[in-house]
Every structure is written in C-alpha cells, then in structure tokens.
Design a protein around this nucleic acid. Structure first.
Length: 329
DNA sequence: AAGGCGGTCAACCGCCGGGAT
DNA sequence: CATCCCGGCGGTTGACCGCCT
C-alpha cells in the first residue's frame, strides 16, 4: 500500500504563489514559527499543501535569503564542493549563507555545468572531457555470452575499477602509488579492455544487468572493492583536508572581496589546468571521492564529511591562499 | 508584429530517513 | 518490531521572459 497523500489534493491550490498568500504564510511563521508544516495551511488560512508552504518559505520567504546573483567566490565554492560531494545540494547550500539548495541546484544546472563544459571539464566527474571519453571507451565490454557459457572473467568489473585504475589520481598525489595487488587488478583491466571504443566492433556499452549476472564479474567486483577499500582511510583524510582548505579559501577570499579584492577562482583556472593532475588534485579528488561516497556508508566517510561541513571550527582559522593550493590564477 | 526558441527559476513530485506510536 | 507520519531531499516540470529571425 502506498503512502497516503499529505493533503487533500482536490482542495489544494497549485502554481505560483500570490502576494496575499505570501503575506499569510509570512504572518503565520513570524508568530508561530515553522514547525508542523502539515497544520500550517489550515492555521494560516491557505489552500496549499503543507509541503508547498514549507518550500515557499524555505526557498523564498525565509529571512536572510540572498536574491542577488552568485558571486565568483560562491561559484568557486559550489564547483569545488560539487566535485567532492556530488549533487548533495543541501550540503552545498549549507556552506553558502543565504542560498537555498534549490538556488544552488538551479544555478548549477543552468550556468555552472555549462561553464565547465565550455572549459572542457565534465561537470559530473569534474575531469577533462577527453579523459572521461577515454574511460567510457575502456568500459566497453564484450557481448553477453550465451546461457551456459562458463564464466571466463572476460567482463570488466564494476565502475570502481576505472577510478582505481586512473593514473591521474596517482599523479595528482590523491592516491598513493598502486600496490602490487592493485597493479594486478589494473593489469587485468588492461588485458581485457579494448584499446579504444572503435577498436572492437563486437563490443557494446556496459549494461549492469549483464555484469551483475556474471559470477566471474562479481568476483572481480569484490576484488576491486577490496582494493578500493584500502583507500578509504586516505580518502577520508583527503576529504577533510581538502574541504578544510576549500572552506578556508572561501572565507579568506570573501574577506578579501569585502575589502575590495578580487578572486580568480576555480572556473577561471580550470581552462588552463585541465590536464591530468595539473594544478592540484581537484579533478582527481572529485571523481574518486564520489566513487567512495557511492560505494557504501560502511566506513562513515560521508558522515565525516557532513560533520566536517557542519562544524565551522574546522575551517574558521584557516589561512590558506590560492597560490598554496594551486587553484588560483 | 509574431512566432520560434532557449534560458531561467519557482514549484511540484516521489522517494527516503528518522522519530513517534 | 511494524507501521504511520513528517520533514527533507534531489530530480523534473512548466510557466515566464527575452532574444532572434
């Protein structure tokens, strides 16, 4: 049985809010606060769903919201946090006073992702598009074997491997040099992967159902995850360190901007440092951390990030500069 | 002037996690 | 422990607007 609707949709108004509705909602929240949104419409005299009221308040009526354009510093912070956290808009918005997750999400989708693409950066992985295309090429696999064919280990492993198998991360210093065990896994991928997407006309794009159905592939996946797990501790340290630097950078540059200074920024730097490992570890850290976050929560890394980002003490005293981190102009 | 088109953004939808019972 | 309910979240939609032809 599905969850019942939160309100009587037949008697609920939808669409844009009128000034009168805004005034009612604002009057109610200013005197009663913002708890129990399901009762707010009735008590405030609104024919709206409680969720709609909450959304209108948090995204538009809430005090201290910024309605002006995003600054260069805010753009930089969004890009960098997106690289580390992915599309966790609420977490990102928490680091941008006066901005909502909806603001950040819209700004990303309409402006920032395009800017990155124009600079040759894939907005999903934050890596050079050429690298991403190459990775897609190495992800191609052979056609599914007929039923009954014994597993031969020819299927490529799950996505964690291409991330482990990425010299950019080693070059950037994000990952330590591969251990013999990791090299073995990497070699296995190299032996299996066609040199390029066009090299083998019999191949096809990776399909999860095909991969998951293959016992050998599951074994390789397990192996890969074991290898990847060895990085978790280093990754947690890297995440903490980078977030600390990023937020310190943001606050430092905000202070500079308030005094009339300007900021170069991540986007400005991206075009000139899009090569593998160039200008620091942003690109490598991005994809790698995303993979870890997606892998599982067992290590508590994601919790660590959340705690870190929620605690201003982590970055309040930072004095990192652009040149120290290699991402300024 | 009018229609097409793309960009922007407010709002909706459905899912999920967590607290209450 | 199971169920219900609420708030929060991310993805998506659609209305609106400005520009171009």
């Amino acid at each position: 049985m599905g969850r019942p609707p939160c309100c009587d949709k037949a008697n609920v108004k939808k669409g844009p809010w009128t000034p009168e509705e805004d005034a009612k909602l604002l009057a109610y929240t200013s005197t009663h606060g913002t708890g129990n949104w399901t009762n707010v419409p009735q008590r405030a005299g609104l024919k709206r769903c409680g969720k709609s009221c909450r959304l209108r308040y948090t995204n538009y009526l809430r005090p201290n919201l910024k309605h002006e354009n995003f600054t260069q510093e805010e753009e930089d912070l969004i890009v960098t946090l997106h690289a580390m956290l992915g599309s966790r808009w609420s977490l990102i918005a928490n680091q941008l006073p006066g901005r909502t997750d909806n603001d950040v999400k819209n700004y990303w989708n309409t402006k920032l992702s395009k800017k990155l693409r124009q600079r040759g950066i894939d907005p999903i992985t934050h890596r050079p598009i050429a690298d991403v295309m190459h990775s897609i090429g190495t992800l191609a696999i052979r056609p599914p074997q007929p039923p009954g064919t014994p597993p031969n280990g020819s299927y490529l492993p799950a996505p964690p491997l291409p991330l482990v198998h990425d010299v950019a991360y080693h070059a950037a210093g994000i990952l330590p040099p591969p251990t013999p065990q990791q090299q073995a896994v990497i070699a296995r991928v190299d032996a299996d992967a066609p040199a390029s997407p066009a090299a083998d006309h019999g191949q096809q794009q990776l399909k999860w159902s095909d991969f998951l159905a293959d016992d050998a592939a599951v074994a390789v996946k397990s192996e890969a995850q074991q290898v990847l797990g060895q990085y978790h501790h280093e990754a947690a340290v890297a995440v903490k360190s980078e977030a600390q630097q990023v937020l310190g950078q943001y606050h430092h540059e905000s202070a500079v901007a308030a005094n009339g200074g300007g900021g170069g920024g991540v986007l400005a730097a991206a075009g000139s440092s899009s090569g593998a490992g160039g200008g620091g570890g942003d690109d490598g850290a991005a994809a790698f951390i995303d993979a870890i976050l997606d892998c599982d929560k067992e290590t508590g890394v994601d919790q660590l990030i959340a705690e870190l980002l929620a605690d201003p003490a982590y970055y309040a005293g930072s004095s990192s500069s652009s040149s120290e981190m290699g991402w300024g102009c």
